[in-house]
Design a protein around this nucleic acid. Structure first.
Lengths: 201, 201
DNA sequence: TGTACATCAGTGAACGCGCGTTCACTGATGTAC
DNA sequence: TGTACATCAGTGAACGCGCGTTCACTGATGTAC
């Protein structure tokens, strides 16, 4: 009998995955700080001690949520980039749009991914995932300006583009964007940034 | 006898100000979430009920910390901008450098200013302060490209610059910056961004 | 195929903790006469 | 200047709460023979 069958004959099925999903929902519902192990257990319909069979403590559960989110973000970015010609401005813009869309669709998880809650950020595994994702940006930027991936100009351009995308993501989910007073789409903004920053000396 | 005299003959002197300062220290020490009214009262050497004579609840105290921080940030920005010729690239870069320096010197307060803790962000007074600060950026960008302050090109350029500065601030305090692999100074980065974004079409 | 056993995911009760907030109070200060 | 009084910033004790985590346990499952 497969694990994902209707019958709950087994203990739970897959509590670990279930907890990660429920935790993500809670974080989106009540903010990065409105999350508790107790409430997650309640939603997963297990006792408050059950999560500790899968995670050594609260921060390990949160790390699992973040790790999963990073995987999905990286996947989205690659998928959307690859719908455009390699080396095109549209390709690198697609990376940024995936990033911004992710932030908008899971704002609290997005915050959690960036040091909002202290003490979960020094996980080497998470750091590596972040660096891998930035590597994609560098590589794509390099293709775009016809440089080698280790060319300092590519790294600089990629970093500046990342600041635009990251900053725009935060300002959007913080609802600070209306401050700008106008109605430019994300795409228009990122295309303008790409044009301005990729070919700056 | 002046209030700020050595003798503690008066009840406390200025508990309100004292609490705001102590709260800021706590936030920097333990992160935006490591803050409690009880600990603030302890540090200010008053009972745990005393803060409620000055703030109706915890979030009002936090708002006071954020409000004070916004005032200081805006002050820093104006002071440093005005050390450069009006309309120069250096002038608008100085705004960004003040912003980044603020984030680096008070990272947790900076986080608190941007929606980290839910439910304190809809204060109209805080929103107005934020908008006033962004107004300075728009005005300075407009001068820089020789446009009127309500010119959409100025607004767009100002917003894009803000995303760079804001994103770079967060990535710096999140310690994600080393990812970029190189050793550009904040000033070099912001100058490059200014050159690329102010004159983009 | 049947049985004995080891494993281990889940239970449920309990713990100690620090927190936010309230309450009746006190005593120093400022002020009206 | 002296006195009576109103004000109000602070006290200290207490509250109820939900949390993170531990513990001894149980009972379903997988596996060796």
């Amino acid at each position: 009998m497969s694990v994902s069958e209707t019958k709950k004959s087994y203990h739970h099925g897959d509590l670990r995955t279930s907890l990660v999903n429920v935790a993500r929902d809670l974080i989106e519902e009540f903010g990065p700080n409105g999350f508790s192990v107790a409430e997650a257990a309640r939603r997963a319909k297990v006792s408050s001690a059950a999560p500790y069979k899968h995670f050594s403590d609260k921060s390990e559960l949160l790390n699992a949520v973040v790790s999963d989110a990073m995987d999905r973000l990286r996947g989205d970015m690659l998928r959307r980039r690859d719908a455009h010609p390699a080396g095109s401005l549209e390709a690198i813009t697609a990376l940024g749009l995936a990033y911004v869309d992710f932030a908008k669709s899971e704002p609290s998880v997005f915050r959690l991914m960036f040091g909002v809650t202290e003490g979960h950020e020094d996980e080497p595994a998470l750091r590596e995932k972040g660096e891998a994702t930035f590597g994609i940006v560098i590589e794509t930027a390099a293709l775009c300006i016809g440089a080698a991936p280790n060319d300092p100009r590519a790294v600089k351009a990629a970093y500046l583009l990342w600041t635009v995308v990251h900053g725009h993501s935060f300002l959007s989910i913080d609802d600070k964007r209306k401050t700008s007073g106008d109605e430019l789409s994300d795409e228009q903004l990122l295309l303008a940034a790409g044009r301005g920053l990729l070919f700056a000396q």
